[in-house]
Design a protein around this nucleic acid. Structure first.
Lengths: 199, 199
DNA sequence: GTCTATATTGAGATAGAC
DNA sequence: GTCTATCTCAATATAGAC
């Protein structure tokens, strides 16, 4: 390796990792479809041909990034109290884990959440997301059966509202801002589980 | 006029209204950028030239649709207990109004929420959204000062989480489904204000 | 690992007939 | 109000030199 392993260098001398991170940032600024390979290369400070030396297609960049995002989310789900914890506790851990993954991989998760299914690659990503959502919905349902979560809101709807709130973080959260990841996770858990109204 | 005023007819014989609604649906399926005018015309069953007879550009379609969506949201804000009601009540009315507008204008609001700022038209739409968000944030702040809303979550963050939940409805809500608009608004208010946890 | 130059396809938009 | 045919430009991707 060269320096600090896989760190971004000053200018040319990109490796696949640095190129991927930079490309995902540009995709998130302007949208994947609206970003041409020419514009991407210009922003990265190299030629199209150099880009194609590292990735075989524009879509391969997308596929790699959303794959990493999905790996992270699935990992958070798998790591959430699979042991003896109650379903209510598991749900809280999944939410917390999802916020953590989202914050730690903000660019790739942002890109993932904007995928609409326009190609085989995008449809495969949507399918993995759908499977993830279904597993979470099952936990919400179990938490309802346990009595930990209110039963007067349908479990599928509750799941969608929860993840609507969590996923919306990509629209405004920036790691450079005043709010740290842990404080953010606490706010989300507070609003989602206890509500905003005072008592 | 012809029939039922501005109703969609069987095939050719489009007017601007019917064409707009159909175009917005296609944009929402595949994304605005990824939808070519050729693909749009094909889906609508007419030629590109016929489309350009009704709209001077692809972007004019976008501008018209997101303008309608913004008109609706701003109307809901203006109509939300501007009178003597408490800020806590106003906030609940704004949330309910936003859900109603979103459900009644689901296609155009969906399109609006996906705009990223890639052109002057898009940037103007984002600016109107930002102004809307700021007005709502002021109501949340006032409701906190009143003691109606918990003060241990920053008002700006609370606003974003609230609208993250509301706006996420466009990702899954379909008017044809089992849940009506009023029941949906009630669920959103319940989760946002009282939380999912049982007490 | 990067470049310039280019092939090829599809984009948005228009001309002009019916 | 719609069509076919076409203009022009920008898109993805590749060739081949350094």
């Amino acid at each position: 390796m060269t320096d600090a392993a896989t760190a971004k260098r000053g200018r040319p001398g990109y490796d696949r990792r640095g190129l991927l991170d930079a490309a995902v940032s540009v995709f998130n600024e302007s949208g994947y479809d609206a970003t041409s390979v020419a514009a991407l290369a210009a922003r990265l400070g190299l030629s199209k041909a150099a880009l194609y030396h590292h990735f075989s297609s524009k879509e391969e960049i997308l596929e790699t990034a959303v794959g990493e995002a999905l790996d992270g989310l699935e990992g958070a789900l798998a790591g959430a109290g699979a042991g003896a914890a109650s379903s209510g506790d598991r749900l809280a851990e999944v939410l917390q884990g999802a916020v953590r993954v989202l914050v730690e991989n903000l660019p790739s998760v942002t890109l993932l959440l904007r995928v609409r299914g326009n190609s085989e690659v995008e449809r495969r990503a949507l399918e993995r997301r759908r499977a993830f959502d279904q597993e979470v919905a099952a936990i919400v349902q179990a938490a309802q059966d346990e009595g930990a979560i209110r039963a007067d809101v349908d479990a599928a709807i509750a799941t969608r509202l929860l993840f609507g709130m969590v996923n919306s973080l990509v629209e405004w959260y920036r790691p450079s801002g005043p709010e740290g990841a842990e404080a953010l996770a606490r706010d989300v858990l507070t609003v989602a589980l206890d509500g905003l109204r005072t008592r």
